[in-house]
Nucleic acid binder design. Structure first.
Length: 213
DNA sequence: GAATAGATTGTCT
DNA sequence: GACAATCTATTCT
């Protein structure tokens, strides 16, 4: 019995070759699967954000910035944009839209489905804890995603999205981009309502006005 | 529960 | 040399 077969095959490139906000919303509920020599690890995507360069100031491709790091975002859709932040964490993105359009979807949280023990070993915590995969850096560690997966083709290979159960989707502003001015307020974050693996719940809200009651 | 600071390094100015 | 699409531990309240 192949657990991997039960997860289904990779989504086609047409899934990624659509507007970035559409892909970000449709990601919620899909499975993210990574097959390695250590085994299979997979989870349902429960949180994702759209980054829409070159105009989006929060995007690494802002102003068309094209470097060794951002290069894959300028290529065809359905590839992995993996980058390193804060000196110790990897983040995983899907390249979307058309070739030459540097758009990407950041996967921010998963609900573990397969390979809980493997994720637990990689994370160094118990498999029941929501901290296993409730953040972009955490899910990369749990699934074993790092530099090696940069540019990987998600339509053929060991790292891919597969179909999954879709539930209620909500949206909010994105997380951790306060520097991006007006772009920081755009509701380009999508998440599954009530799922305990969402990285910040309740989601970020406007501060309540103390003058109001 | 909320707020804060420290960790630690690839990438760009 | 500065900073970052984060995580964790610690220190408040």
């Amino acid at each position: 019995m192949s657990r991997l077969r039960d997860l289904g095959g990779p989504l086609p490139r047409s899934f990624y070759a659509r507007p970035v906000l559409t892909v970000a919303r449709d990601c919620i509920g899909k499975l993210l699967v990574h097959v390695t020599d250590d085994g299979v690890a997979a989870g349902r995507i429960v949180e994702a954000e759209a980054y829409r360069g070159p105009f989006d100031r929060a995007a690494h491709s802002y102003l068309g910035r094209r470097t060794a790091r951002t290069e894959v975002m300028f290529g065809p859709p359905g590839h992995a944009y993996v980058f390193f932040v804060y000196g110790m964490h990897w983040n995983f993105n899907l390249v979307t839209g058309k070739s030459g359009e540097p758009h990407a979807v950041l996967i921010r949280a998963l609900e573990p489905v397969t390979g809980l023990d493997l994720m637990s070993v990689r994370r160094g915590i118990s498999p029941e804890r929501p901290e296993l995969t409730n953040g972009p850096g955490k899910l990369c560690q749990a699934l074993g995603i790092s530099r090696r997966e940069y540019g990987a083709d998600l339509c053929q290979g060991r790292l891919f999205l597969a179909d999954g159960e879709r539930r209620r989707v909500a949206r909010s502003p994105r997380v951790g981009i306060d520097y991006a001015g007006a772009w920081a307020a755009k509701p380009w974050r999508f998440f599954e309502s009530g799922n305990k693996y969402v990285s910040r719940f309740p989601p970020p809200r406007q501060k309540r006005d103390p003058a109001r009651t």
